[in-house]
Amino acid sequence: MTVKLRQALQERIFKQMEATFPNEGGGFLLGTKQGAEILIEDVIQIENVFETEEQYHRYAMTPQNWMKMEDEADARHLTLVGYYHSHPNHVAIPSDYDCEHALPNFIYIITSVMEGQAADMLAWELSQDRRKFDSRRLEIL
C-alpha cells in the first residue's frame, strides 16, 4: 500500500501541527483508493476535544465529527481514508494508545513535532488482527 500526499497538503498539516504545539492536533484524510494506492485529496482539521490539560499527549474527535465527515466524503464522491495527528516532542511512531483506538483499513498519518517544528511524517495502518501497526509508504507529490 502506498499513500500519496500532495506537498501543499503536507505543508498544511505541518503548519497546523506547529500551531497546536505543544498540544496534539489532528484531522481527517479524504481521498480515493485505487488498488494498492491511496491518493489523499483533502485534509480537514478537526478540533482536539480531549481535556485541555491532557492535550499535550492526547487527541480526540467527537462521534459527530466522524458522522459529518463521512457524509461529506460521500457527497464529494470521496472516501474517508484515514486520519492524522501529531506527536509533540516524540517520534512519529504509533503508541499502544493509538493501537487500542484504531481500526484497520484506515490510514494513520503521524507527524513528529520537535520543539515546535514539524520534523517527520510517517504513514501507518493497523494489522487485520489488531496486534500492531504496519508502516505504509508515504509518497509526497
Partner: peptide, 11 residues
C-alpha cells in the same frame, strides 16, 4: 449507525 471515536496520542 456505528461510529468510531477517533483518538490518539502518546503512552
Amino acid at each position: 449507525r456505528i461510529i468510531p471515536s477517533i483518538a490518539g496520542g502518546l503512552d
